[in-house]
Design a protein around this nucleic acid. Structure first.
Length: 599
RNA sequence: GCCCCGGUAGCUCAGAGGAUAGAGCAGCUGCCUUCUAAGCAGUUGGUCGUGGGUUCGAUUCCCGCCCGGGGUGCCA
């Protein structure tokens, strides 16, 4: 990690003054001094006075005394146990931005802390296109994968496609009955959307049949729609299709293959547009039988118990009892997950496995992890559920069957179209249409991803399509705009024949408060990225990038670069701007958000 | 009933034991012949759901209660 010289020296001298007290890994992390307080950086001795066995104000006094003599320190002021300092400009820039490569390299963790992490996200069903809920999952998944990779972990992003089951058969059955052999090509519709339309048709047909059934047989009034499913013709037919699928019926399998390939081709487009890449995709059709042998094994070892009715259960203490095998010997959801988790472990031998899955499955994962621990897998401690909240609409929850969803592809188009309008307005007449399209894609998708990542994953998001997504304020485009301004300055400099990077910049020429604040903010980048990675929470990095963008825009306003009186000041300010751009681009790229050259 | 998550400015959210609780949006005031105004500066707005407790110090930790969401399947 990048450290200020005065902080390292302070650590050493405090250790000397109180020998044998502080542990080897103890270190001081200076904080930014609040704006209405004197100073730039604060050493908060409340945080570590205890390690020296001293009262905070004693340590603060000692620290202040040490720092007052330090050549890098301009002023020291102690308030309670806070030691506020201002740093001499030359030292401040030397320790923060002077070495840009070192700043970016400081994000990477030491080798001993790097791990192999498998992260599973997206996990779509192949009966319908993806909606905003999936987009949140995908965005969080790839951002966290990016963060973990950026700090040096070996990351294996994987997908598990749920490509079998009754919901798939529903789409298939509706296609057989109402499809007239339509294909994505003949209908000129993306494959996942085409298949999804049959899923909706099935739901409609089923609803009508249930309604008719209820009208004909009033004694069924107390039963739920779900309980009546097999009473309907179309319900029984779907169940029969599932049975034939499981039996390997060639006709059913052929239809299944065809429709799945349509959906997967559609998903590929969606993933590509989002910038998602998986190291491997598992298919539930190939893994759904896994786990049963593990249940048999656990039964033999007394981890599980067979109940009188034949079902196999496990006692999970506070979490309750859980059935892991039905009385007819077939798997339940958790049986499959036990099997695939063990498979994933054997395929990759990761130190950690992370699942990005909605919070309605919190209990499921608690149970899954508890079962794997009871089965005795030492690696079960490395399993975690990255749980995130729903995306609700003003009208309530999104429901595919009722068609009340914000479709992913439609949303992307809408975002990009809005960005395109804004680009058009700002562009000079000479900018080619293709270039505007390119910018709009980066800005529109960036705005969407940034918005989704800005929330803490746990919070339930209320998404109002009519209010749409903003491009101003705390947004992706705000950060991208700072980058575009920097790129523009560099272009202008080139046009005017000003050479900005000829010699090593003279950092001692900088001393304005906006310049110092910008450099200090840049210094925090490695910490912000590492903390976000550690917490598996991209919102921390998002907040940081907004903060950096703000620091830059203030600097931009107050400290002219090309207009600086002294060419040497222009050079060093340009270097500071370039450092800013490098960090912003690095941070956005980590979150799979791009940066346009101009906006 | 039990379990999990949330309740902070009009709205959307930060804040993971420390200073006088922050930001964006919305509202109001200014700033584009000056490196891009997707920007900047200023301003209005808060009993941090509520009642206790621990602590030198609590929005933050613990307990009770209220409100909202999710879960509590031999569904996934």
């Amino acid at each position: 990690m990048l450290q200020f010289q005065f902080v390292s020296d302070l650590e050493a001298q405090l250790r000397e003054r109180f020998p044998g007290k502080a542990p080897a890994d103890w270190q001081i992390l200076p904080e930014r001094t609040p704006e209405n307080m004197p100073g730039e950086l604060t050493v908060n001795t409340f945080r570590f006075a205890r390690v020296f066995g001293q009262a905070p104000d004693k340590i603060a006094a000692a620290a202040a005394e040490i720092l007052a003599r330090h050549p890098d320190i301009e002023t020291v002021e102690t308030i309670k146990a806070f030691v506020n300092v201002t740093v001499r400009p030359a030292a401040l820039f030397r320790d923060t931005v002077a070495d840009g490569r070192k700043l970016l390299a400081a994000v990477t963790l030491p080798e001993a802390q790097r791990r192999k992490v498998l992260i599973e996200f997206s996990a779509p069903n192949t009966n319908k296109p993806q909606h905003l809920g999936h987009v949140r999952n995908n965005t969080i998944g790839m951002a966290v994968a990016g963060l973990l990779g950026r700090v040096g972990h070996e990351v294996i992003p994987i997908n598990l496609v749920n490509d079998r089951g009754i919901h798939i058969c529903k789409s298939m059955l509706a296609y057989l009955r109402f499809g007239n052999d339509v294909t994505p090509e003949s209908a000129k519709v993306k494959g996942d959307h085409l298949v999804g339309s049959f899923y909706v048709k099935y739901a409609q047909a089923l609803a009508e049949e249930i309604k008719a059934l209820r009208a004909a047989r009033p004694e069924l009034a107390a039963k739920t729609d779900e309980e009546l499913f097999l009473e309907t013709e179309i319900g029984a037919a779907a169940q029969e299709m599932l049975r034939r699928w499981e039996a390997g019926d060639p006709e059913v399998r052929k239809l299944w293959q065809m429709m799945n390939s349509w959906v997967l081709a559609g998903f590929d487009q969606t993933y590509q547009r989002m910038g998602i890449h998986f190291a491997h995709t598992y298919y539930e059709s190939e893994t759904y039988l896994l786990g049963k042998d593990l249940i048999a094994d656990g039964l033999a070892r007394g981890v599980f118990r067979r109940r009188a009715d034949g079902a196999v259960t496990v006692d999970l203490g506070k979490l309750g009892q859980k059935v892991v095998l039905r009385s007819d010997g077939t798997s339940v959801y958790i049986t499959q997950d036990i099997g695939t988790t063990v498979k994933k472990y054997h395929d990759y031998h990761p130190d950690e496995q992370i699942w990005v899955v909605g919070d309605e499955q919190n209990l499921h994962f608690q149970m899954l992890f508890a079962i794997l621990k009871q089965l005795g897998y030492a690696w079960a401690d490395g399993l975690s559920h990255l749980s995130y909240g729903m995306v609700n609409l003003p009208s309530g929850r999104m429901k595919s069957r009722e068609g009340t969803v914000v479709d992913a592809d439609d949303l992307f188009d809408e975002m990009v179209a809005l960005a395109r309008e804004a680009c058009q307005e700002r562009a000079d007449g000479e900018t080619a249409a293709a270039e505007l399209d390119r910018r709009a894609e980066i800005i529109g998708m960036g705005a969407l991803k940034f918005m989704l990542l800005k929330f803490n994953a746990k919070t339930t998001i209320l998404f109002d399509p009519s209010a749409s997504i903003r491009f101003e304020g705390d947004t992706g485009p705000y950060v991208q705009y700072a980058c575009a301004r920097i790129a523009s300055i560099e272009r202008k400099a080139a046009e005017r024949g000003i050479v900005l990077d000829a010699a090593a910049p003279d950092w001692s020429l900088l001393a304005r408060s906006e310049e110092k604040l910008l450099a200090l903010t840049l210094w925090f980048y490695p910490q912000a990225a590492q903390q976000a990675a550690e917490r598996r929470d991209a919102s921390g990095l998002v907040e940081y990038l907004l903060d950096l963008g703000k620091s830059f825009n203030r600097f931009y306003r107050e400290c002219p670069i090309l207009g600086a009186d002294d060419p040497a000041i222009a050079r060093v300010r340009a270097a500071l701007a370039a450092r800013t751009r490098d960090v912003l681009v690095d941070g956005l790229k980590t979150l799979t958000i791009g940066v346009p050259d101009a906006m």
